[in-house]
Amino acid sequence: MALELATPTVDGLSSAIDALRDWQTDGSPHQLHPGDLGWFWRFGAEKTAASTRVWSRDGVVLAVGLLDEVDMLRVALAPDALRDEELTQQLVTDLTQPERGLLPAGKVYLESPNGSLLKERLAAEGWQLDAPWVPVRRDLTDPVEDPGLRVDLVGTEEAHERALVQRESFAGSTFTDDRWFTMADGPLYADARCLLGRNELGESVAAVTVWFAGAGKPGYLEPMGVHRIHRGRGYGRAITLAAARTLRELGASTAFTYTPASNVGAVATYESAGFVRQPETRDLVREA
């Protein structure tokens, strides 16, 4: 049977989510995590489904894509399909022909795992490497040290604080109370936790959301932020340690995230919390 490209219904998202969970293993290249769909769910179930693409063969999912932006596609591949010739050719065709409706004409971006044949083929088509990102990972075999900060589990009563810290941590953030509730009502949040760090005055100073993909699998931090007026006091390290502790309690094997290499402060924060730098990864960009 030929390869099929589909935009799933909301109910049909389960196959993409299950595939992303299955593909998360320690030692595999960094790529799209179920938590990425979980975080995107803040925009609603219908938009999440409309922004997802699934490539399958004989009913087996081989690749999952998330249109994070109109011009930005993030593609995850089954571990045994990283060098799949037929799949790669189909992806190249879908990505380089705007009339197929996947990416528009003009400047576009693609995230795909290191070591994939897809990156090599698109480079041959004239796509260029974009700025580097740094994945960081912490092994959770041993207990994680106490963060030394009061950390609350976010529920309905704390949702407004979680949303506020997000907006104050990231310029241009559109996260709101309603979007937190939308995200929390989604199926992926059943395996997630939002944590809120408080200083000695009880003020909310930092926040993180962690996503669990299953026992013995890597857990994901997305996003983590420190309120802009409370930076430089170690709260980023503390909330990151709290995230790692939570993922270990859930049963994750490792905790990971990634950040632009240019954000040296974020990289240093993760390293101070025991996370280890992994090989850099770069998106591909097509300029025209």
Rank of each mutant, 00 (worst) to 15 (best):
G197W: 01
R228P: 10
V136Y: 00
Q90V: 14
R74Q: 15
A2N: 15
D26T: 14
G148T: 06
D185G: 15
L62N: 10
L87N: 07
A81C: 10
D26I: 14
H230V: 03
G251A: 00
L140A: 04
W211T: 06
E203A: 13
W23P: 10
R233M: 09
L122F: 03
N199M: 06
E69M: 10
G172Y: 02
L77D: 06
E203P: 09
E287F: 04
V210F: 02
A78H: 10
W133C: 09
R57D: 12
W211S: 03
S253P: 08
T25E: 12
G186L: 04
F212N: 02
Q31W: 10
D152W: 01
M1Y: 11
G214V: 01
L250V: 05
T240D: 03
V264I: 13
P104E: 06
V205D: 00
E249H: 00
S28F: 07
F181P: 00
M183R: 09
E86P: 03
A50H: 03
S112V: 12
S112A: 15
L87D: 10
H160G: 03
P147I: 10
A123E: 15
P187L: 05
R150Q: 14
V205L: 00
F43Q: 11
E4Y: 08
R193M: 11
L20I: 06
D146C: 04
M1I: 11
S272H: 05
D58R: 13
R277N: 07
R42P: 00
T48H: 04
I239Q: 08
N114L: 15
V92G: 02
A81E: 04
D178A: 13
M1V: 14
A192N: 01
W133R: 06
V54M: 11
V226D: 01
E4I: 14
L62Y: 07
D178S: 11
L95F: 04
G232T: 08
N199L: 06
S262N: 12
L118R: 02
L73D: 07
A6G: 13
G65V: 02
L284M: 07
V208A: 08
Q24G: 02
K107C: 09
S14G: 13
G44H: 08
G59K: 12
T96P: 08
P187D: 06
D36F: 00
Y270V: 06
E280A: 14
L129T: 14
W180A: 11
